[in-house]
Simulated scan of single mutants.
Amino acid sequence: MEPVTWGILGASNFAATRMGPALHAAKGSCLAALATASPEKAARFAAFAPGLKVHESYAALLDDPQIEAVYIPLPNTLHVEWGIKALEAGKHVLIEKPLAMTAAEIAPLIAARDAAGKCAAEAYMIVHHPQWQLVRRWLDEGRIGRLKHADVTFTYDNPDPANIRNRADVGGGSIPDIGVYAYSSIRFAARAEPVALHARLQRENGVDTFAQVWGEMAGPDGAFSFAALTSTRLYPRQEVTFQGEAGRITLSAPFNAGVFGEGQVSLHGFNTTETHRFPGVNQYVLQVEAFIAHIRAGTPFAWTLEEAQKGQAMIDMVRAGEI
């Protein structure tokens, strides 16, 4: 079977260091083209993808008949626009999170996917990591009894005003950047949706740099309390806890496993602890391989556009709940 040939729109640092190498390393996958007008940026990709074709415009890459799938790591405000253009050009498309600035903006992308008959998804890589699949299974099995509370912390320090994550004009802020992980990780694992949310936000130059969120979510076993802290102005920290009537589940590197620390999940019961470690797992490669299976064999993809839209609806709810 021929490998899926990928093109990337734009030469972001994240694409150069994480997703580009994953696209080239995944089984049945080949990074074949890049759209950038910068020879210096292109050289970073050519270093791990020999023979890389470089297009000077996004449109030129979409017109390339040798490219079957496109990865889009552009600024947040451009995701839907170029995702639709890629689908209309007959490409499968994997779009970096967050897909959009509001849930309503994702509807035209879903319609474009359906009209094109191609695969399209948000690059929400954590759901492909075995640690999150294990947490979901434990919760499904009732290993901690009825879920009563979930809390999340995801922080890092990025004070550079020129950084794209600190620019309001391209959809920056801690919520679009990492709130998408903090909120939808709970949605995914607990199969839950928010009922009511409140938020306290701090802003700099029009973007949120600190978001404290609390409220209630509801899953198969009923309602549970929820609390989340995200910030781009605090010392790096990642922690997730699910607390039930008969125990709790903790993740010590829930979002950047392998970078922030080794993926590790623990199940704490009365006088017992069960811990699973996941050394050497690359969740970006797993994500690409799952997307290729979706393209080639129609295997269900763990994070559909509809799931991403529900995640964005939760972000919308957070903003609407600011006090």
Rank of each mutant, 00 (worst) to 15 (best):
E2D: 15
L9R: 04
G10S: 00
G10D: 05
A11W: 10
F14C: 03
R18H: 10
G20F: 08
K27F: 07
S29D: 03
A33C: 06
L34V: 03
S38Y: 01
P39L: 09
P39H: 10
P39A: 13
E40L: 08
F45S: 07
A46K: 09
A47H: 10
A47C: 02
A49V: 03
A49H: 01
S57N: 14
Y58H: 11
Y58G: 04
L61W: 06
L62R: 00
Q66T: 13
I72Y: 07
P73T: 09
P73S: 14
N76H: 12
T77C: 13
T77R: 15
V80D: 00
V80I: 15
V80F: 12
W82T: 02
L87R: 02
E88F: 07
K91Q: 11
V93P: 00
L94Q: 04
I95S: 07
K97F: 12
P98H: 08
M101N: 13
A103V: 02
A103R: 04
A104I: 01
E105V: 04
E105Q: 15
I106P: 05
P108I: 01
L109C: 06
L109T: 00
I110E: 08
A112I: 00
R113S: 02
C119F: 12
C119L: 13
A121W: 08
A121F: 03
E122W: 02
A123F: 11
Y124S: 06
V127F: 09
H128I: 01
H128Y: 09
R136Y: 11
E141S: 05
G142V: 15
G142W: 14
R143W: 10
H149N: 11
V152I: 12
T153P: 02
F154A: 01
Y156A: 07
N158K: 06
N158V: 15
V170T: 11
S174E: 06
D177H: 13
V180K: 03
A182I: 01
Y183Q: 14
Y183R: 06
S185M: 15
S185V: 09
I186V: 15
R187Y: 01
R187A: 13
F188I: 07
F188R: 00
A189P: 05
A192P: 13
A192L: 10
A192Q: 05
P194W: 12
V195F: 11
V195C: 14
A196G: 00
L197D: 03
L201T: 09
L201W: 05
G206K: 05
D208R: 04
M217G: 05
M217I: 03
A218Y: 04
S225Y: 01
S231G: 04
S231V: 02
L234V: 00
L234E: 14
P236D: 06
R237A: 11
E239I: 14
V240L: 15
T250V: 15
S252T: 10
N256A: 11
A257D: 12
G261E: 09
S266K: 07
L267R: 04
T275W: 12
R277D: 09
F278N: 02
F278M: 12
P279A: 00
P279W: 08
V281G: 05
Y284N: 12
E289A: 06
E289S: 03
E289Y: 10
E289T: 04
I292V: 15
H294R: 14
P300G: 11
A302G: 12
W303R: 06
Q312K: 08
D316S: 04
V318E: 09
G321K: 05
G321P: 07
